[in-house]
Design a protein around this nucleic acid. Structure first.
Lengths: 230, 230
DNA sequence: TAAAAAACATTAAATTTTCAATGTTATTTT
DNA sequence: AAAATAACATTGAAAATTTAATGTTTTTTA
C-alpha cells in the first residue's frame, strides 16, 4: 500500500503532464527543472520572493506558513500532502509569494521554472485546466480553515484541525503528528496553552489518545460534534 | 469618469473574451448565457448549490458570504467590485459552492453555463490562463483577510477592512458604505459592538469621519499604522 | 403613513483567550 | 555523553472579546 502510493507519487508530475502534453513538450519543462529533496523544516518556496518557480510535491508534507513582519507571529494557512502542485498562488497572479511553503516531513519536489510552464499552459488548455484544478484544492482547504477560525472558538477549531489531518493529510484516524504543539496552535489560530489543555482534556474524556507525537482519534463522532457546535 | 468605467465594465466579459477567442466562439457562450440584474441583497450564486454557472460581474459590488448551518453565523470572506469573474471556485473544483455571492449594491451580471465555458477554456490555453488569473484575485483577498483575522486583533482587523474597501473596492478614501455595521463585523470577524465602538473612537481621534453610511478616511497614515501594529 | 422591524449606539457583566511564570521532558548540538 | 536548547505541560492573573440589557434612530412593510 505504502509502496504503491510512493510509486504513484514519485513520477506524479510527469505522469499527469503526459496525459496532456507530448514527451517532447515535457522535455522542455525538464530541461529547466530540477528534482530536489527537502529535509523537515526546510523552506521550498519563500514568502516575499518573486514567483520564479512552481514546485510539484512528489512526496512528503508541506505547511503554508505566513510570517508577520510586524508581530513576528506565524500562521499556518493549511497543510498538504503529496501529490500537489505548490506555488499555485504564483501560477495565478504575478505578485511575490504571499506565504512560504515549508517541509514538515522530508519531501521530494520537482522544481519548475514558472515561465516555461506558463507558456505550455497557454498552448494547451486541457493541461491548464487540469493543473489549475489541482492547484485550487489548496485554496479550498485554506478557505475552510479560515471559515473555521472565523466562526468557531478554540475547541471547534482544534477539532477541525485534527479532522482535516486525519481525512486529508494522513488518511487515517491514527497518525504521527508532523507538527509541534506550537505549529498546531499556529494552524488552529490559538495559543500553545490552548492546544495543550485541549489535548489533555480530550485525552481524559477518551476522545483521543496522545503520546508525544503519536495521535489517535478514538471517538471520531464526538470530535465531529465538537467541530459542529463550534 | 464614472461613465467611462461603466462603459468599460458593461461589455467587460465580451471585451476580455474577444482578446482570446473568436466572435463565433463567443456566440457559443452567449447562446447559453443571460444578462441579469440583481438588486442589493439578492443572491447571485448560492452556497451548497451545484456549480452549474459562472457569473461575470459587469457592474456592482458583491460579498462572498459563508453561512454556518450549525451556529447560524455569517462570515464575509471578501468583497469585490466589478469587473470580476465570480464563481471562480467552481471553475476550479467540482464541489458545490463553498459560499454564496450576494449583491451588496445593485449588480449587472453575465451568467454563463459552466460546462460551455469549460470546453472553451480547454480548447484555448491563453483564454484559460487569463480567466484563471482574473478569478484568483478573489482568492488572494480572501487569504489576506484570513491572515489579518488570524494575526491581528479587533482594531487591526477593522483597519484592514477599511483600507481594503478604500483601495480595492471603492478606489477612494471617501465612500458610501455598502455594508451595515453587522456586515462589517462579519467581514472583520468581530462583534457589532466592536465595530460601533471602534468607529466612534476613531471618529473622536480624527482618523475617520462617519455619518451613517458615509465614511471618510481622514488620516490614512494613522490607519495604516493601526493595521501594522495589529 | 402608521406600525413593525432592523440598524445603530452605549454600557456593564460574563466569558474566552492570551500572557507570564515555572518546571519537566525530549531533542539537538558540541 | 554532557550541556544546551527546544518542546511539552500546568497554573493563575491579565487582557481582550462577546454577550446581555437597554434605548434611540432609521428603514421597511402593511
Amino acid at each position: 500500500m505504502a509502496e504503491q502510493r510512493l510509486e504513484n507519487y514519485y513520477s506524479g508530475f510527469k505522469k499527469i503532464s503526459l496525459q496532456f502534453i507530448t514527451a517532447e513538450e515535457f522535455r522542455r519543462i525538464e530541461k529547466t527543472s530540477v528534482n530536489l529533496k527537502f529535509k523537515k523544516g526546510e523552506t521550498i518556496l519563500k514568502q516575499g520572493h518573486p514567483p520564479t518557480h512552481v514546485a510539484f510535491l512528489q512526496s512528503g508534507i508541506v505547511k503554508f506558513n505566513f510570517s508577520s513582519e510586524s508581530t513576528g507571529k506565524n500562521t499556518i494557512l493549511t497543510l498538504v500532502s503529496a501529490p500537489k502542485i505548490l506555488g499555485g498562488a504564483n501560477l495565478f497572479y504575478k505578485d511575490n509569494n504571499l506565504f512560504s511553503m515549508v517541509a514538515v516531513e522530508d519531501c521530494e519536489v520537482f522544481l519548475i521554472e514558472s515561465n516555461v510552464l506558463f507558456e505550455l499552459l497557454k498552448s494547451n488548455g486541457r493541461f491548464a485546466v487540469a493543473l489549475f484544478q489541482l492547484a485550487s484544492e489548496m485554496f479550498k482547504s485554506s478557505i475552510l480553515n479560515f471559515i473555521s477560525v472565523a466562526n468557531k472558538q478554540k475547541e471547534g477549531r482544534i477539532a477541525d484541525v485534527f479532522l482535516y489531518l486525519a481525512q486529508d493529510v494522513y488518511f487515517h484516524s491514527s497518525f504521527n503528528l508532523s507538527l509541534t504543539r506550537k505549529e498546531l496552535a499556529e494552524f488552529a489560530c490559538c495559543s500553545v496553552e490552548n492546544i495543550i489543555m485541549t489535548l489533555s482534556k480530550w485525552q481524559q474524556e477518551g476522545i483521543i489518545a496522545v503520546a508525544g507525537k503519536k495521535l489517535e482519534i478514538i471517538n471520531m463522532e464526538k470530535l465531529k460534534q465538537i467541530s459542529k457546535i463550534g
